[in-house]
Simulated scan of single mutants.
Amino acid sequence: MMRLTFPRIMMVLTGALLLTYAFAVAPTTSAERRGGAVTAEAKAPRPRGPFPPAGKTFIGVMTDKGPHDFAPVDQFTAAAQHRPQVMLFSEGWASATFDRALFDRIRDRGMMPMLGWEPWDYRLDERARQQKLTAEEIDRVRSAQPSYRLSRIAGGEFDTYVRSWAEGIKSLGYPVAIRFAHEMNGYWYPWCELVNGNQPGDYVKAWRHVHDVFRAAGATNVTWVWSANVRYTELTPAISTYYPGDDYVDWVGVTGYYGKYDFAPYLSFDEVFKKTITEIRAFSRKPMVVTETGASDHIGRKAEWIKEAFETLPSYPFIIGLIWFEVNKELDWRIVSPPTVATAFARAVAAPRYQVTWSPDMLPRTKLEE
């Protein structure tokens, strides 16, 4: 056996240090001498993803409290026995300034934030509801807001405000989805082209302008979600007239509910969505998200609708997400009541297709072939 003398120990330690330098330190310092080839970006961990993975569909949630109070989200999670991966919340231009804490709270709960960014004063809507106006009267009040006419947005009058949000969202350093001015093909918001003095083509101009302000600010961590309402009548313009183009959109969305209908006691998921989905797929092949949906129990078939809806979703392989409207508003869309509804939802989302996780280092899927 070789004796470990002090000189021999020193030789071994010296050799180990030289090997460490050769394989770890030297390549980095050499690269830096060649002009700083090793950057902070290169040293950062590579993003995982995409989100959601191929063949999966994420489940999201929207509540009336948003990230200001997570109690409704916790109740939804308990009822669904499933943690949502996306949280949609709304902020209106008249009163909301960028607040990083709202986004971080959602992120810290393992959900991707989706901002429903609404260019209007929502307080007019709240006051109209408090006055117990009819639904038609409420729509007229909330949609007549000339200060937020689309031409003013496209003309740059809100650029300072828009830029402040772009810079704030850029500073987050993780992916955020923005659903800007949704349901533009309706008549109940001031950004709808059919009201508020808006003209044909104004919506696309406004969308592109807002998008370009974000791009100029370097806010590249935004997934842009264009979201139409399901079309109930052929008397409204084609939905394609509101589409700003694939270069300006990452996810296409659609909103639709099973509620009360005068012309049918019950409408299946396909009866609510299929016609509009087909129309959207004719002009865009972007990944699709059901950005708002819910079901009422007015004839006792809410649990049945949920079961059938989730069984139908796999027939639309391009739908990568569904966001449930967990709010008691006008009708009770929540899954927390009655227990049969919660059970139906929990069983539906237990399917392997809906087993998805999100983390801030994942890149949102923007192409179906990824």
Rank of each mutant, 00 (worst) to 15 (best):
M1V: 12
L13S: 09
T14W: 09
L18D: 02
V25N: 02
E41I: 05
E41P: 01
P45I: 01
R46L: 14
G55R: 11
M62T: 14
T63K: 07
G66P: 10
P67T: 10
P67M: 05
P67H: 06
V73K: 02
Q75P: 00
T77M: 06
A79P: 08
A80M: 11
V86K: 07
S90P: 00
G92S: 15
T97C: 02
F98Q: 01
A101Y: 11
A101K: 11
L102Q: 14
F103H: 07
D104N: 10
D104M: 10
D108I: 05
M111S: 04
M112E: 10
P113T: 05
L115Q: 08
G116D: 11
W117D: 04
E118A: 12
W120A: 04
D121T: 07
R123T: 15
R123L: 02
Q130R: 15
L133E: 08
T134Q: 09
I138A: 01
I138M: 10
R142A: 11
S143M: 04
A144E: 14
P146T: 06
R152T: 05
A154L: 07
G155H: 10
E157M: 11
V162Y: 03
V162F: 06
A166L: 07
G168A: 05
I169E: 08
P175M: 08
I178K: 03
R179I: 08
E183W: 04
M184K: 03
M184Y: 00
M184D: 01
Y189H: 13
E193T: 14
E193I: 06
L194W: 00
P200I: 12
D202E: 10
H209P: 06
H211S: 03
D212F: 08
V213D: 00
F214L: 02
R215I: 08
T220Q: 07
W224T: 05
V225I: 13
W226Q: 00
A228N: 07
T233C: 00
Y242A: 05
Y243P: 01
P244T: 03
P244Y: 08
D246Y: 08
V249C: 07
V254K: 00
G259I: 10
G259W: 11
F263Q: 13
A264D: 12
P265W: 09
P265S: 09
F269Y: 12
V272R: 02
K275P: 00
I280N: 03
K286F: 06
M288V: 07
A295C: 14
H298E: 15
K302I: 04
E308I: 01
Y316T: 01
P317K: 04
P317C: 05
F318G: 06
F318C: 01
I320L: 13
W324N: 01
E330C: 07
E330N: 14
E330F: 10
D332M: 05
W333G: 03
T340C: 00
A342M: 02
A348H: 04
A351H: 15
Y354T: 06
Q355I: 02
S359L: 06
S359P: 02
P364Q: 07
R365F: 03
R365E: 08
T366W: 01
K367H: 15
